[in-house]
């Protein structure tokens, strides 16, 4: 698919937007607006799944796309990007079959195989898994969930474009600041030592709560 191009398609499960955003997000948004105005509200009220040919899309770009769609009466229900990120199904098995539409129970994730140090930042439209620590002064921003297989001591933002169901999980959850969707919680001003067990942060009754993380009972 050409860089900057887009295509809408009707599918059984709703509308599918396939696009290759490229680096010119402004131009892309302009063309998206044109395309949607041509359809004169035909799509209004439908939900859209988006598939991007791009390897990664900055959260800010995703936010602009979501807003543009919303202005035309469309809700984005899921998002997928290509290449390195893998589609991970609920069973936890990675499927490498290109770019299928993904449902709400599944998400596209990127694996960061190193420790993020002060001043380093990962910004990704799907979920982010870090195989290492996130040190103070480092940032992880994800459209989906954030999972840290180590100590999270920096800043993490899950559900960065509005998903209040997103969670942050870490082996040692001790962040300077946590954000989920548009909620923010910061660490207590007193020194907190690293907890000794995995924890999960999620939104409950409009606030971010942190609980011990235990593996959910298997469906079988």
């Amino acid at each position: 698919m050409e860089v900057g191009s887009m295509e809408f398609r009707g599918t059984k499960s709703g509308l599918l937007l396939r696009a290759h955003v490229g680096s010119d997000i402004r131009g892309f948004i302009d063309r998206l607006k044109q395309r949607l105005s041509k359809s004169r509200g035909f799509f209004s009220g439908s939900s859209v799944k988006a598939q991007f040919e791009d390897k990664e899309i900055p959260v800010e770009s995703v936010r602009l796309i979501v807003e543009t769609l919303r202005e035309c009466g469309l809700e984005l229900s899921s998002i997928a990007t290509s290449a390195r990120p893998r589609r991970v199904s609920r069973s936890g098995i990675a499927e490498e079959d290109g770019l299928p539409a993904v449902g709400p129970d599944e998400c596209v994730s990127v694996l960061v195989k190193r420790t993020l140090r002060s001043g380093q930042r990962v910004d990704f439209g799907g979920s982010v898994v870090v195989l290492g620590d996130v040190n103070p002064g480092a940032e992880v921003i994800a459209g989906g969930d954030v999972v840290v297989m180590g100590s999270l001591r920096g800043m993490a933002h899950a559900g960065a474009y509005g998903d209040t169901g997103a969670v942050v999980v870490a082996f040692r959850l001790n962040p300077t600041q946590l954000r989920i969707a548009n909620r923010i919680s910061r660490s207590p001003d007193t020194v907190r030592t690293d907890p000794s067990h995995p924890e999960i942060a999620r939104i409950s009754e409009d606030a971010i709560v942190i609980e011990a993380f235990s593996v959910p009972a298997s469906g079988r």
Binding site: R117, S118, G119, Q120, N135, P136, G137
Partner: peptide
Amino acid sequence: EVSALRDADKVVGL
């Protein structure tokens, strides 16, 4: 000191 450590960590990355 925390601020020196923060800088050291950044330098490791660089």
